[in-house]
Simulated scan of single mutants.
Amino acid sequence: MLRFVNLTLAGVSQGMIFAAIALALVMIFRATRIINFAQGAMLMITTLIAWSVLQHSRSYWLALAVALGSGLVLGAVTERVFIRPVESKSPLNAVVVTLGLLVMINSVAGMIWGNSPHSYPPAFSLQGFQVGGVRLLFSPADLFTIGAVAFTMLALVLLFRWTVLGLQMRAAAYAPEIARLIGVRVSRMLTIGWALSALVGSLAGVLIAPAVFVGPVQFESVLVYAFTAAIIGGLDSPVGAVVGGLLLGCVLSYVSGYAGSEITPLAALAALMAVLMLRPSGLLGSSTGRSV
């Protein structure tokens, strides 16, 4: 029984890490209808910037603030410089641009910080809570991650459903021509969407850095699982991103704990295929177009 509880807690912790990045993917897709394959590289370089600040200031919270600020700037600049020239063309063009950005950012990070991974301290202790003389595989750092991701999910849900800015962003993404006719500045909404997505990605990078270290290639495997979680939950649903992350995290934890870690990629593929066969739009994704 204790083993099952520990595997469940480990799955929840791991799932929230997947959910953190999945939220960034959902944010950019919902705001611009683009799948950003450079998301991992963007959060990686902002986390490296935060790591540099941390080395000089020794302040976790200052480093986090710098990561979020640099994410906002990076997202806005990316949309203005690289994405805007292809926004009016085929959506495939923007996807190809994000793939090019992935290669470019990884190369720049390698030239500045090197290819060796760097350790990143957590905000709180990694030692598991002790309950009744038993040490659980669930720490204050895990609790902080869960709280931060849950807060981000709630903020995105409120943004898109209950604010004028969120409604304008949805309108700009789904029907830009009509949005322009009613006075929405579509180009500004797309810039804000990219900026907010990069901000969420920067938060995710800092949250997962203690578990995977920080380097140009350290986030790639986590990004694959996060992308899987986003598809399972539904690419246009912030709540779905968290649900998909938790589901995938628990599945991988159980499979690793009872059957061996070598088959966890197959388990992730099986979970993805099972969900898509039953509901192609994802567990909480929209099967029809939204009205804006």
Rank of each mutant, 00 (worst) to 15 (best):
L7T: 02
T8F: 15
T8M: 15
S13Q: 02
G15T: 05
A20E: 05
A20L: 06
A24S: 15
T32W: 03
R33S: 14
I34F: 02
I34H: 07
A38W: 07
Q39W: 11
A41R: 08
L43D: 03
L43I: 02
L43W: 06
M44Y: 07
M44W: 05
Q55P: 11
Q55E: 11
H56N: 04
L62Y: 09
L62E: 12
G69E: 08
G71H: 03
A76S: 06
V86F: 02
V86Q: 00
A94G: 14
L101Q: 04
M111N: 14
W113L: 13
S116H: 13
P117F: 11
H118L: 13
H118V: 06
G128H: 10
V134A: 09
L137W: 14
P140I: 09
L143Q: 12
G147I: 09
G147N: 12
V157Q: 09
L158R: 03
R161G: 02
V164T: 14
A172H: 10
A172G: 09
A172V: 11
P176T: 11
R180S: 13
I182T: 13
S187D: 12
R188W: 10
L196F: 03
A198I: 00
A198V: 01
A204D: 08
G205Y: 04
G215F: 10
G215L: 12
E220I: 02
L223Y: 01
A230R: 09
I231W: 14
A241Y: 13
L247Q: 04
L248D: 08
V251Q: 01
L252M: 09
S253K: 07
V255G: 00
V255L: 00
S256Q: 06
G257Y: 04
A271L: 15
M273V: 15
M273W: 06
R279N: 03
G285N: 04
